[in-house]
Design a protein around this nucleic acid. Structure first.
Lengths: 217, 217
DNA sequence: CATTATTATGACCGCTCGGTCACTCCAGGT
DNA sequence: ACCTGGAGTGACCGAGCGGTCATAATAATG
């Protein structure tokens, strides 16, 4: 946790430090980021960083907490989960993740980098497992309710969903990185929301033209 | 490129070095691997590494070349690509990737780690783009031939396939890491090949129970 | 203004890393 | 037995890192 000194800082300076650290940690891996570079980018001395944080990991963890807080805000809007329809729930999840990536791209990149990084084990050893466990629960229930094809193993279905959902934000940022209109955050005309809908149809019905049907095997 | 000294080495010693380096570079990121640790694992002095390779990157690149060579061998078996049926080609690709991951897990891990690593830009700036460009070509053609639903954008279809295929090997290793029977490399009873078939059905027909059909939008 | 408490600083420390090099070792030719 | 040249070695170097600390600057207090 940051030291009290950090929270006593004038708002503008605190923001400058957060932004500088966020810029660094969202564009490079934890080990590639040096405390000096963050200090330089924030326009302060390296020693000052240690007035605000216990160590490099403390700074990083604080940034992550901010990111998680922001992200949760997007997900807690859609409190409607656990419904009867798996695909409706999936769409709510995907849309929340997509809006987060669109509105808070640096935080998204930070979180994505973190998920793949070796430091993860030093902070949240099982973050991935948590989100995967949540998805697994949804998949198993849908399987029992017969809302997904009976002949797909839940394990593979979980892989299918987990992979597609967790990479989707990065895909959106890559494709729409340039200038997209940040208006209409839930508007169906929003290109991002159109992509979410398209992805959902791919997940439900696949790539094959409508009418083709799986033969038994 | 390794120095001639390396190729003059007795077979067993060369293998010991390759295996040691492979073990290190497949389990840690490039920057986390130290030349000393490789030397220790191989039972030689650090200075000796520099008798065989120009520098650390040279050693790493050599390993990658080995991995790519091995992998290509698996893919060149299925020379039948470019056929009429996208899904047949996809299955050939996926099966080759799956067999590679199953038979050469260390090489697979090395390649997977490389694809996400910052060193990639120092060696093959556009490796991902190559494989993506290949897939894009297949997707575009299938789109023109009407072999995939007309209402999915090729860009998203490319994301869909690229993500699912490139993570699939890692999924297999995670799920079957323990003891699987390495016999029957193409046998349909092989659990790995069963998974390939299942994944292909997911890609074609999605998760929804057969009979459900996408409404227009 | 003087005194005290708090914050800011960059020189410095210990460590690890990639890479070098003077030296040793050893096989084979004469 | 001697020489020679390639192969093997580990002490060593400079650079960069995370982290510390004596000191300086600033703010707060009376």
């Amino acid at each position: 946790m940051p030291k009290s000194t950090f929270f006593n800082l004038p708002e503008t300076k605190r923001r400058r430090i957060i932004d500088a650290a966020l810029e660094e940690f969202s564009s490079k891996n934890y080990d590639q980021v040096s405390v000096s570079s963050v200090a330089d980018a924030a326009g302060i001395a390296k020693g000052s960083i240690y007035q605000y944080f216990d160590d490099k990991l403390d700074l990083y963890r604080y940034l992550l907490d901010c990111a998680i807080g922001e992200k949760l805000a997007y997900f807690s809007d859609g409190v409607t989960l656990g419904g009867e329809d798996l695909f409706e729930d999936l769409e709510v999840l995907t849309a929340a993740g997509a809006r987060f990536a669109r509105d808070r791209p640096r935080y998204h990149e930070l979180a994505a980098r973190f998920a793949e990084s070796p430091v993860r084990e030093r902070i949240l050893p099982d973050l991935k497992d948590q989100s995967a466990a949540f998805l697994r629960h949804m998949v198993d229930r849908a399987h029992d309710l017969g809302r997904i094809r009976g002949d797909v193993s839940p394990k593979l279905a979980l892989y299918f969903l987990n992979t597609l959902l967790s990479e989707f934000g990065t895909y959106l940022l890559r494709e729409y990185a340039a200038d997209w209109n940040r208006v209409g955050s839930e508007d169906a005309c929003d290109p991002v929301m159109r992509e979410v809908g398209e992805l959902m149809r791919l997940i439900r019905f696949g790539l094959a033209p409508t009418g083709e049907v799986p033969e038994d095997d």
